[in-house]
Design a protein around this nucleic acid. Structure first.
Length: 528
RNA sequence: GUGGGAGUAGCUCAGCUGGUAGAGCGUCGGUCUGUGGCACCGAAUGUCGCGGGUUCAAUCCCCGUCUCCCACCCCA
């Protein structure tokens, strides 16, 4: 292999893995702007920042999001977190396919390895190095029994022992070495967990929190959809379920989008009822759907059984007419939900928030109830939702906390950025205020001092590490988008007068060192 | 997980259904050892995504695979 090929090979090995990506300047300037705006706007609504872990026990997400959702059943990055590394090797020795079990010796050898594993696992179990759960105890017990049976059975030919060996391998495979944990696919569950864990019900209610950070779902990448993606979200926990809270949360997102000058923003709202009225509606919907089953495509037909609400989401042109005739949940809300929904709408109007009622807006995650909303924006293709949210009053209790009201939303930051980029010219290259063109060793010392002082005063300064000819230096200054070049050569150092050049018009003046910063301040104030 | 499209220099792309690659931009150097943008000259960077097949010969044709894009599923 040639040197070039080897280099290429190296590079090929390290690509950002599927569905992940690097965010680079100048684009990151926009990300910073978005996040700073979120910090500012959310603070004006009294929200405090929370940072929760990137991973949590898988169980937390399974419980909150719902076992049957795709997110939990197949889209999480899940792994076992263990310290008993020596067990892995011993387990591998058992579980790997052996060449054959054609002889009694092979069986004895296999049982030997199983014995080694069980012994080590028992020790680790007693020492608490693998989880002391009833499941693990049972699994180990089963492995012991199966081993004893197999020993008693003896070698009676390959075909006879293979099923028993497979069974034993399964038992060995099921021993848990550590906690099963997952990278967070969203943050609401974690925020609720933190609320409970830190006894936040003791704080003045409601508690208002927001977060910004990466989430992980193992999906097929697409426009605005990545395996590591970023969400900006907020949750209001505790206190009452006053409609004004729903409205304020929505008002806050809309204010945020407004501040960012996001184009084509459309807010859709709906109420999906509560534990009382939603199940009744779902049954009614299912019954009606069965009547018109023939007019629906295969996907929708499947959903009649699995998740009838999802049929309402269908984008198929051919199904739209049929869907329009279906019963609407807003006509089947219980008294309390209907009152709540009406009040939320009134509250939104009072706040001057424009919305569209969308009876077909449903939520995919189990924990939502009553108010749901979704915001779409321009330039996002088929993935046009930029924010989704709703009320989830039962969630904290479901996770072992006190009965607690809750409402929140999550913004897909990747999509938000995408949409902003559609309507916004590319962010300008972050230029420097001053490029220091120095020449000669004496000037170098002066240049270093100048850079330090300028930076201390808050100017962005580029100080070339090696001597350059002035022509070269000014060329660099220009390419970097510097506003000024500070020229320091023998003349300047000996005269004590520094040369400051304004790149835009080529004007140039001489200044004594102490006057420099003041001059730059004035010039900056004047230009911006 | 399913279907469609695409992968050629750092970027944007050209390359005649087969004869082992080019342009523009960018980068670096020079013309130019106290003055940038311009101009001119020069240089570096490619196993033409990867692997296999057909062929005397493959960037081009066939198969597989990976990645990206678009749509579906699902979801923010």
């Amino acid at each position: 292999m040639s040197e070039g090929a080897a280099k290429k090979e190296e590079r090929r090995k390290f690509q950002a893995i599927r569905g992940t990506r690097d965010l680079l300047p100048p684009e990151t300037a926009l990300w910073n702007h978005v996040e700073q705006t979120a910090n500012q706007v959310f603070a004006t609504f009294g929200f405090g920042a929370i940072r929760v872990p990137i991973f949590e026990p898988t169980e937390l997400f399974a419980r909150s999001i719902g076992l049957d959702t795709d997110v939990v059943s197949k889209e999480m990055y899940t792994f076992e977190d263990y310290e008993a590394t020596e067990l892995v090797e011993l387990r591998t020795a058992v579980v790997t396919n052996v060449a054959s079990l054609a002889t009694g010796e092979a069986l004895i050898d296999f049982l030997d390895r199983v014995g080694n594993f069980i012994l080590a696992a028992e020790k680790a179990f007693e020492a608490g190095r693998i989880p002391k759960t009833p499941e693990n105890e049972r699994t180990l017990q089963m492995a012991r029994e199966l081993t004893a049976n197999l020993q008693a059975f003896g070698y009676q030919g390959e075909r006879e022992i293979l099923p028993r060996v497979a069974e034993l391998k399964d038992a060995v495979r099921q021993v848990r070495f550590g906690d099963v944990i997952s990278l967070r696919p969203e943050a609401t569950a974690s925020v609720c967990r933190a609320y409970i864990e830190h006894g936040m019900q003791q704080l003045p209610q409601p508690v208002k929190l927001y977060y910004i950070g990466p989430m992980f779902r193992r999906e097929r990448p697409q426009r605005g959809r990545y395996r590591q993606f970023y969400q900006i979200g907020a949750e209001v926990l505790g206190g009452s379920d006053a409609p004004a809270i729903d409205a304020e949360v929505i008002e806050m997102v809309m204010t945020f989008f407004d501040r960012l000058e996001l184009h084509g923003v459309q807010l859709d709202i709906n109420s999906i009822g509560c534990r009382e009225c939603r199940p009744k509606y779902v049954e009614l919907l299912r019954a009606e759907l069965l009547k018109v089953k023939d007019k629906l495509g295969p996907d929708s037909q499947r959903r009649i059984r699995t998740n009838p609400l999802r049929v309402l989401d269908s984008k198929l042109e051919s199904e739209q007419g049929t869907i329009a005739t279906l019963p609407r949940i807003t006509d089947h809300l219980c008294e309390a939900c209907a009152t709540h929904y009406a009040a939320v709408k009134r509250q939104l109007e009072m706040r001057g928030v424009f919305f569209r009622e969308n009876w077909r807006l449903v939520r995919g995650l189990d924990y939502y109830m009553r108010t749901t909303f979704e915001i779409t924006a321009q330039g996002l293709g088929s993935q046009n939702a930029v924010c989704g949210g709703g009320r989830y009053d039962g969630l904290v209790e479901l996770l072992g906390g006190p009965p607690t009201k809750g409402i929140g939303f999550a913004i897909g930051e990747d999509r938000l950025i995408l949409s902003l980029q559609e309507s916004r010219k590319a962010p300008a290259q972050p230029g420097r205020d001053v490029y220091i063109a120095w020449m000669g060793e004496r000037a170098h010392a002066t240049a270093i001092r100048a850079a330090k002082d300028l930076r201390k005063a808050g100017f962005s300064v580029e100080l070339p590490p090696v001597e350059q000819k002035f022509g070269k230096a000014l060329g660099q200054a220009d390419k970097l988008g510097a506003k000024h070049a500070l020229i320091l050569g023998d003349n300047e150092v000996s005269e004590g007068l520094w040369t400051l050049k304004t790149l835009a018009d080529g004007s140039q003046l001489k200044l004594p060192e102490p006057a420099l910063i003041e001059h730059l301040r004035k010039s900056k104030a004047g230009s911006s």
